[in-house]
Amino acid sequence: MPAFLFVTVFLIYPVIDTLRISFFNRNSTEFIGLDNYEYVFTNSTAQSALLNNVLWLVLFTVLAVGLGLLFAVLSGRVRYEAMAKAAVFIPMAISFVAAAVIWRFMYAYAPEGFTQIGLINAAGTGVGLEPIAWLVEHPLPYTDVTLPGPLHTNNFALVAVGVWMWTGFAMVILSAGLKGISTDILEAARVDGAGEWQIFRRIILPVLSPTIAVVATTLVIQALKKFDMVWVMTAGNFETDVVATLMFKQMFNFSDFGRAAALAVVLLAAILPIMLISIRRFRAQEET
């Protein structure tokens, strides 16, 4: 019962009130129907934020899970396993804001001919490449090719930091799952003449798939909620806004509570099915 009360006050009531506010004007004095939702899906800034979130969702999740799996499988085969894993996992222990600040320095840019204090540009100019303003530019690095948004260099640079932070998380969980696979099965497969790739494809991947699903779900929710890193590194400038940063701007910079609430509702609607799926899967696992 106290738990129910707690959830009602801190979760259910705010959700319902946000939903209500999203149908009202900027200071919640006038009912305006679906206008705020029209803004979310038709305004160019809002559209770009939605697309950026899609990019985060796909690229961030795929890369973090993929690299995590790769590290988990490979690090299990080397003698310095603990060290290798620690190196990948350590970023996870840094606060997001601190990591974002660190990477701002990594990406720091100075015009050609000036001393580069950013590690990446210092290395790049060291081998004769032009410096790149990683957090500003849109064209692909070292080319004049500009892909349509959200496929911009600065978005990739931001996603890379997210991947750097979350790969360790994916690796640790997947590695634990990996250790759970009985060596007997693997031995048996080897005796039957299966190659390493086949073992991975036919045994490890299927056995590991529930774990991968759990990790992916967590990362998808992370990608949808992304705020801190974008806010610190670009503040959403140069078309790097995601839904959460745009929501913050609408709320606090423009005092438009209606639009902010509409963005929050869209975000919630996107996360909700993923949560439901993972809860259902969790229940299914409990039952078996």
């Binding site: 840019y109 100075a110 015009p111 050609e112 001919g113 000036f114 410096p131 303003a133 957090l135 500003v136 530019e137 140069f238």
Partner: peptide
Amino acid sequence: VPGGAIGALAT
């Protein structure tokens, strides 16, 4: 401007 528009935006 050193770095042109990108220089101005990134500095």
